[in-house]
Design a binder for these strands. Structure first.
Lengths: 322, 322
DNA sequence: CGGGGAAATGCTCAATCGGAGTATAACATG
DNA sequence: CATGTTATACTCCGATTGAGCATTTCCCCG
């Protein structure tokens, strides 16, 4: 939370002892463009959009929407709360400043608004290159992460060694098997603990080896981003939220690519279509897209009626675990 | 949040304009005793344990644990964050008081501590009698809730009528079918909206009929409880959290009764056992329980190793949706 | 000591689901 | 018109799930 927070400059409330109490709102704002998962950032990609929760805001979610629209010019669609933090070590420097950070996940259609600070879209795999398994397990896991985590495990005493090795194997999977895309947060936390990300070095933790590739962020924003990714990866499996990221009409392959972008893994094409159709989530628009490179594809739109019919019921995706 | 909040009496922080900013911690603390799901309450069953987040607390979760242990004498096991609220209308009376409420779900073994205020355990179906479908759909749904919701739907204009009827049918299921135990929160909110719970009357909402049976709570504590129930009902299906509520050794039927108590519905006995065994979640202690009323049952214990082996992987329960 | 009641426990069966593969159709391009 | 590329339609099989039947092993009661 160093300095550059957007806001009105209104002084933060302080209690009699001079200690500050304040609430910050932080957004993990996600979009998908052409098969790339993007996250909205500020300050040159080093921070997530955020701002203080102020008295004028009717509710937390209204406050968040206000900030995001002010800072990015984007109207926010789907929004859900992620997590609330207040650990003392989140208060950089000023030991007396106590900040509660309430983070949110928001989904947007990127094309919608190329507004004010909207230059901040970044591929989220820039921050988590080890999370992209769409073309198989990334080489950097075997080349950089696995050896470093091995070293980290060996660093531990007799007792901790096996435990660390086990955690590493669980989080990153053994030889490509057992990878669970929903554990994005656990993986980041493991790397942090092992001192393999820049934030750990910044916070003065010892490193078990050379830093792993991947952009860092200020404060614990990268951890919050990992939380958002994990939540979204879990959510797309049982709620029709992907459609919040799609244009009004799309082909099934485009839809599939979006799912894959978020999940970080490929899915079986035919099974994907089967599920989409048998669940009645989409309907044909009647038009076709001819720029597919092959046979023209039918264009579909989301059947908004399903939100009503099944309330908030299910989307199934061929992403289930064995 | 009227008056009776536990705390040190330390004045709440205020900003220059005299507006207060503070954070409250609220716990939905759950246990299961003899097949009954219980929730810890204070003030004669009208409130959930809560207290201000103070500067001395290292983190939100530490603060929560401190309050719960102070107020109930119970050591808290599993804890997870539920939701953070800050709507202006949560600030009763004093329009200038702005409170952020961070709610948590906690699981406890009831027998563990019959400590200080530990008289506060209540069957949670006292608050949500319509949520207990263990012996089939409760009569009060057909007798009281359905007619009242019908009336509420008819109250709406031409457009809203179908919408309301649809929401009611979705939330409560049509003729016993389509009931989804995870929608406890949506059901409560629907009843609130229709003015059928005491809290709605208290908040000045018009009623669509006579109040539905079920104990009320102060402020929005009953809503928070519903949030906790819904979360727990969802969670037991994919995480081995039920065991946090069980004694060290238990029979499979006891385990099943606990699951049923939480889920509010019965499960197929043989299939339940099949799942428990094939997942290696439990192991035999070697002893048997002879007070079963029939053939003695083997006693089992939770295999704590699974938490390590499968990290935070799965429990399957025969509670899946059709 | 011989039922009868109550669970515990073991086993079967059919329907469905989920993963994976094969085959065919319809376009663009050279 | 051959070729590459994608869309789309079917098929297959193993695993999972919901549901029920059958058998076993206790206690209690007369």
């Amino acid at each position: 939370m160093t300095g550059a927070r957007a806001g009105t400059g209104e002084p933060r409330p302080r209690d009699e002892a001079g200690r500050a109490v304040a609430a910050d709102l932080i957004a993990v704002l996600v979009a998908v463009t052409g098969g790339a998962p993007r996250v909205m950032t500020v300050r040159g990609g080093t921070g997530l959009p955020s701002g203080p929760f102020e008295h004028r805001h009717r509710s937390l979610q209204f406050g968040l929407r206000a900030w995001v629209e002010e800072q990015t010019g984007l109207p926010l669609g789907y929004v859900e709360q992620l997590y609330t933090f207040a650990d003392r070590d989140r208060t950089t420097g000023d030991d007396e400043l106590r900040v509660i950070s309430i983070s949110y996940l928001g989904l947007a259609r990127e094309e919608a608004g190329a507004g004010a600070g909207a230059d901040g879209w970044r591929d989220w795999y820039d921050y988590f290159p080890w999370e992209d398994h769409r073309a198989g397990a990334p080489a950097l896991i075997a080349e950089a992460i696995a050896p470093a985590l091995d070293a980290w495990a060996k660093d531990a005493g007799r007792a901790g060694r096996a435990e660390r090795a086990r955690r590493a194997a669980l989080a990153f999977g053994r030889d490509g098997d057992g990878w669970n895309e929903e554990w994005a947060l656990q993986r980041y936390e493991l790397l942090y603990e092992a001192g393999l990300v820049a934030e750990a070095a910044r916070d003065g933790r010892p490193a078990a080896g050379p830093l792993v590739p991947g952009r860092a962020m200020e404060s614990d924003h990268r951890r919050i981003l990992a939380t958002g990714i994990a939540r979204l990866r879990a959510k797309i499996k049982y709620r029709p939220v992907v459609f919040e990221l799609m244009p009004p009409a799309f082909t099934l392959l485009q839809l599939q690519r979006s799912v894959e972008a978020l999940a970080g893994r490929g899915v079986h094409k035919q099974n994907f279509r089967r599920l989409m159709e048998q669940q009645d989530l989409v309907e044909e628009t009647g038009a076709t897209a001819t720029d597919t490179g092959g046979r023209p594809a039918k264009l579909f739109r989301f059947r908004h009626a399903v939100l009503a019919e099944r309330a908030v019921a299910g989307t199934k995706l061929p992403l289930a675990r064995g």
